[in-house]
Structure formats: C-alpha cells, structure tokens
Design a protein around this nucleic acid. Structure first.
Lengths: 190, 190
DNA sequence: ATATAAAACTAATACTATTAGTTTAAGGGA
DNA sequence: TCCCTTAAACTAATAGTATTAGTTTTATAT
C-alpha cells in the first residue's frame, strides 16, 4: 500500500505558487483556475491536494502566518532588551510590504477558529509575549500590551497597504514613534 | 427632459440594502444576484444605478465610511478634553461590532485612491486630528499620533472581528489601556 | 508481474458578473 | 390630449468561476 511519493512533495510547491500569485496579482487572483494554469494542470486536479478553494485559503493562511513568524523570529535573533520589539516590528511591516498578498491571506482563513490556524497564530502571540518581557509589566497588563502591539502592527500594515496614509510623512517613523509611545505609556501605567 | 423621479430616491435605498446584506451575511454575500433578489429586481437592472460590482463596492465603502464618521462625531459631542478620544474610540469599535460587514467594506473600495473615497476618509482623519488637539503635541508628532491612533483602532477592530483575540480578557479594557498608553507615551515623548 | 492508490484527466452543472438590445412607463412640452 | 424623452426595468446570451462524478494514467510496493 504505497502511493506515488515522488510528486508527493508537490503540496508545499503548490501553496508557494499560490503565495506568489497572491503577492504578484493580489489575493483575489488566487483562484483555482489561475493556480492550475500557473502549475500547468487542470483546476479539478487541485482537489487531489486540498479541499477546494476553502482548503486552499486555509493552507495559504497558515503558510503566510508561518512565514511571518519566521521573519519575526529571525529579527528577534541577535538583539535583546527593548531593542527587540522595534526590530521585530520592522520585520513585521517589511513582511507585509514584501508579501502583500500573503499577508492579506493571513487573515482570510475561512474559519479563524480552526485549530491549525489558531496554532499557527499562537506562535506569533507567544513570541510577542516573550519580547514584551523586557518591559516590567505585571500579569494582565502584559496581555493587554500584547493586544495593543498586535493591533498597531496589523492596523498600520493594513492601512498602509490600503492606501490609508496619504500624508507625506515617513511611515517607519510613525510606526516606531507609536510603538515606543505605547510601551513607555504602558510602563508609566496609571 | 424629465426622467422618472418617483423611484429616483432608490439609490440610497439600494446601498442601504447592500449594507444590511453585508452585516447579516458577510461582505462576500454582497453580490449582484443577492442584492437584486433582496430588492425584487433582476441583476442587470442594477447597472442603471451604479457601475457594476466595482461601482457598488465603491459606493458601499463610502456609505460605510460616512456612517462610521457619523458615529464618531456623535460620540465626540458632549464630551471634551482627553475624555473625547476614549468616547470616540468606543464609538469606533462599537460600529465595527454592530456593522461588521459595512466596516469591512470600508476598506474594500476597488481603488482607495479614488477622490470620493479619499474625501470620505479625510473627514475621519480630520476629526482625529481635532480630537488629539487636547494633547499638546507639536507639529509632526501630532500627525504620527493620528496614525498611531488609527492603527490601533483599525487593527483592534479587524483582529477582534477575525477572531484574533482568543485570550479571555476584557476586550474594551485592552483597547482603552492601549490607547491611554499610546497617548501618555506621546506626551512624555522622547 | 500485478494490485494499489495518488494524481492527473474529461465532461457536466450551477453559480457569478457583464453586455446588448428591448420594453415599460412616467412626466414635460407642444 | 398626444407625443417625445428618458430612467429603469426586462430578456437573452456570453464568459468566467467552483465543484462533482467518473475515468485514465502511472509510479511504486509486494
């Protein structure tokens, strides 16, 4: 009872192709027809690898989250203390800029409650918690801080991507100033 | 040269119907077929009122932005000083909670650079600038603060909507603590 | 060699948006 | 009162989408 393992390594290749499609032509271009054409196969053949468009969206979301985590974790390496949060934040927005489609797909899973999706996202939350341990925040306050940081990072990335910031004002500066303010405000907490 | 004005008031009615569709069944349910069915007409007839699906998405985005602005402006009425930003923030996330589809449609305009869309969004930015004048922020720092505030508000709303916050921890508290921290951090700025 | 099973295929169905061209009906002006 | 204009509906047809059912290819394990 043995399948055909030689092409068994295709699945990751397929998801990668879907990611490129998303980055190059927008997440709306991630259609079974486009993906099949890019791979040189017919749309129905894709059903052998994932469960339809919903399945593809889920796998692409997880793939994007993993890549984002990887970028953040790499950025955290080598720096320490309060510098870390800025390095990781830079990596976050850089990922969203370099991979706009994959970043958008990150939040486009059909069911966010899905255990696999949750698990992928949990790694980013955990990393964020660890990073913020450089700041002396007791108990719940640390968790609120994580939510605040994630909100800024996602809100900033999404608004930048959707053209929400039209003022001619350095974008990275806005982000860094905001994050520093959030954290010093958290420390000086009332 | 006179048309048929009796049903001329339909357009706002149509967009409202699209908004309900978005809130009740998700923004993906805002299709010409569904909208036409809800209105009791045939899909092609909708082309008399807007320029296809793209036109509908644009009008729905502007409609949502206007409604959001209205909610924020109402919340700003009656309060003053540093209380205002919290009241307005509460109104913002409440709108996103009560109108998830319309809120999502807010950032789904086919072309964010469109002058009408920009104009609608500018009102929200202006209001934010005015609100933050209660804080003594000089020049560019005030603009960075507006970006930070908008990032938190959108990021928080989007992550909440997408099920990004699974920790059992009061959501409003997270938002308020984060916004207060951002603003006090901005004041104590380095 | 042969059976198994992954992974491709063709064909068909049901949904989408969209265009073209036609019909209905409300007013305004003669 | 009649007619002309014009908004706003319609039908019919096209192209693109996901999806299902059933078939064929083919590599590998036994």
């Amino acid at each position: 009872m043995s399948p055909r393992p030689k092409i068994g390594l295709e699945l990751s290749f397929i998801i990668e192709a879907a990611g490129k499609l998303a980055d190059e032509h927008g997440v709306n271009a991630v259609t079974l027809a486009n993906l099949a054409k890019k791979l040189g196969i017919r749309p129905p053949s894709l059903y052998n690898h994932f469960d339809g468009l919903s399945g593809l969206r889920k796998k692409l979301a997880i793939y994007g989250i993993d890549k984002l985590y990887e970028a953040m974790a790499n950025a955290a390496d080598g720096v320490s203390g309060t510098e870390t949060v800025l390095a990781v934040s830079q990596a976050y927005v850089d990922f969203a800029r370099r991979h706009p489609g994959m970043y958008e797909a990150t939040l486009l899973a059909p069911n966010p409650e899905d255990v696999d999706v949750q698990q992928a996202g949990a790694k980013i939350v955990d990393l964020s918690v660890r990073i913020l341990q450089a700041y002396q925040l007791e108990g719940e306050r640390a968790l609120h801080a994580v939510r605040g940081l994630r909100s800024i990072l996602h809100g900033f990335s999404a608004l930048e991507q959707k053209g929400g910031f039209k003022m001619s004002l350095d974008l990275n500066e806005s982000l860094f100033i905001s994050i520093k303010a959030l954290l010093t405000g958290m420390e000086h907490g009332d």
